[in-house]
């Protein structure tokens, strides 16, 4: 506790740095993975290719990816851009599968009804499929949030400042309290961002929190939501 009290400014600064590194990959991977997932859902031929590629991408360990990326992108190893690109790639790899599942989970009957009452392909996507895929997309986003916040700490070993710096510094100087602070703060940031996602989901997707007896369950959506 003494260590924490004496280093509050440092912890606050690193928490902010951590958030700055975590937020862009989370947003970017959502924005990129949803269309890719839709393509995988819509065009059967692309499906196995896209899902296999994202699986392989996810298999590459993070530290080697941090080191390999600069050779491809030309950014410097310690640049925040490098970390953001790497974590965006992981986010996409995680999210494409869920996004595909999310669009798959929209019942065919609903899709056909939308077409028969006169929705164009575009407005059907925006006003029917996307809202109904929302709850599953949200579950995927929550996974990306927690995993990204945790992965940011790895950057510390190549010199990128985040809460992970408390691990490397604490290890080198032999201060367990510093490492413990880092672990607790990282988990806390992950849980808070996760909570923010849940609340955002409640505001943007109120239909996924209707009571179980709601007639909307007739559409057959309830099952997928719970499974997610």
């Amino acid at each position: 506790m003494t260590w924490l009290v004496n280093n509050l400014t440092l912890v606050r600064e690193l928490t902010l740095a951590h958030l700055t590194l975590s937020a862009p990959p989370i947003v970017l991977s959502l924005v990129i993975a949803v269309p890719v997932g839709w393509v995988a859902h819509r065009f059967r031929a692309s499906r196995s290719v896209l899902l296999t590629l994202s699986g392989l991408l996810y298999a590459i360990p993070s530290l080697p990816l941090f080191i390999m990326l600069p050779a491809l992108t030309g950014t410097s190893l310690r640049s925040p851009v490098n970390i953001v690109i790497a974590l965006t790639l992981y986010g996409i790899a995680l999210m494409v599968r869920t996004a595909t599942d999310a669009f798959d989970s929209v019942p065919t009957g609903v899709r056909q009804s939308a077409t028969s009452v006169g929705f164009s392909a575009g407005s059907r996507l925006w006003r029917v499929e996307l809202p109904l895929a929302g709850p599953v997309l949200l579950s995927g986003l929550r996974v990306v949030v927690v995993s990204t916040v945790s992965l940011v700490t790895i950057g510390a070993v190549i010199g990128s400042r985040s809460l992970g710096s408390l691990f490397t510094d604490g290890f080198q100087r032999g201060i367990p309290a510093e490492i413990l602070t880092g672990v607790v703060m990282t988990v806390l940031v992950a849980l808070l961002l996760d909570l923010a996602c849940v609340l955002l989901g409640r505001v943007l997707l109120p239909w996924s929190y209707l009571p179980a007896v709601s007639p909307r369950r007739w559409l057959g959506r309830g099952r997928e939501v719970r499974a997610a």
Binding site: V143, V146, S147, V149, S150, T153, I154, A156, V157, L163, G164, F167, T168, G170, F171, G174, P176, I179, L180, G182, V183, T186, V187, A190, L191
Partner: peptide, 19 residues
């Protein structure tokens, strides 16, 4: 499994390394 996802592995490694 949920908690494990949030746990930063580098933190666990360094903490055990010190201990």
């Amino acid at each position: 499994t949920g908690a494990a996802r949030a746990l930063p592995t580098l933190g666990l490694l360094t903490l055990l390394g010190l201990a």
